[in-house]
Amino acid sequence: MIPEDTINEIRQFITDRDWRRFHTPGNMAKSISIEAAELLECFQWSDEPRDGDWEHVHEELADVMIYCIQMADLLGVDLDEIIHSKMEKNAKRYPVELSKESSAKAE
């Protein structure tokens, strides 16, 4: 899903700055949430980004993804594996015949 050279670029960025010691699972989870809130802020009061600033949206989305990649790396989990596993669970929880054209949350 994410090329290994991209993951290695993120790892090198962290290593060069000696930031690994700050990257605990709790800190990573907090950072993901903070960056996701910054992404959400781009759409506050509208379904379009404030001032049409899609570049800012892209930057905030990248920040969320970078922290997610860092957390997966820290935990030693394979992103493809956990995504496919979750999609299998979602498919069982939201079968097409019951979920199509419905935004209702499954019980």
Rank of each mutant, 00 (worst) to 15 (best):
Val64Gly: 13
His84Asn: 13
Ile10Thr: 04
Asp18Lys: 14
Glu81Ile: 02
Glu38Ala: 08
Glu101Tyr: 15
Ile10Ala: 04
Leu39Glu: 08
Val96Leu: 14
Asn27Ile: 07
Gly52Asn: 00
Val96Arg: 15
Ser99Thr: 04
Ala106Met: 10
Lys105Asp: 06
Pro95Asn: 09
Leu98Met: 11
Asn8Gly: 02
His58Gly: 03
Leu75Glu: 03
Glu9His: 11
Val57Ala: 05
Thr6Trp: 11
Tyr94Arg: 04
Phe43Met: 03
Glu48Tyr: 04
Pro25Cys: 08
Ser85Pro: 01
Ile14Phe: 12
Arg21Pro: 01
Glu97Ile: 06
Gln70Phe: 00
Trp54Phe: 13
Thr15Leu: 13
Leu74Pro: 00
Asp16Gly: 01
Pro3Gly: 07
Thr15Tyr: 10
Lys89Ile: 08
Met1His: 08
Asn8Trp: 00
Ala91Cys: 02
His58Trp: 12
Glu35Asp: 06
Val77Ala: 12
Ile34Tyr: 05
Asp78Leu: 05
Met1Trp: 06
His56Arg: 14
Thr24Cys: 04
Phe22Asp: 04
Ile7Ala: 03
Asp80Tyr: 14
Pro25Gln: 05
Lys105Pro: 01
Ser31Arg: 02
Asp5Ser: 11
Ala72Arg: 01
Ala37Gln: 12
Phe22Ser: 10
Ser33Lys: 09
Met71Tyr: 03
Glu55Gln: 10
Arg93Glu: 13
Trp45Met: 12
His56Lys: 15
Pro25Ser: 08
Glu97Phe: 04
Cys42Ile: 00
Val57Ser: 04
Asp73Phe: 01
Glu4Thr: 05
Ile14Val: 15
Ile10Gly: 02
Glu59Ala: 11
Val64His: 12
Met1Leu: 00
Leu39Gln: 05
Asp78Tyr: 00
Glu4Ile: 11
Met28Gln: 15
Phe13Thr: 01
Leu61Arg: 04
Gly26His: 03
Pro3Asp: 10
Tyr67Ser: 03
Gln70Asp: 07
Glu101Ser: 13
Asp51Gln: 12
Glu97Lys: 10
Asp5Met: 04
Ile14His: 14
Arg11Thr: 02
Met1Thr: 10
Thr24Glu: 14
Asp5Cys: 11
Ala29Tyr: 10
Asp53Thr: 00
Ser31Tyr: 03
Val57Gly: 04
Phe43Asn: 07
Ala62Met: 05
Thr6Asn: 09
Leu40Tyr: 07
Ile66Gly: 00
Ala37Met: 09
Asp51Gly: 01
Ala104Cys: 03
Ile14Lys: 08
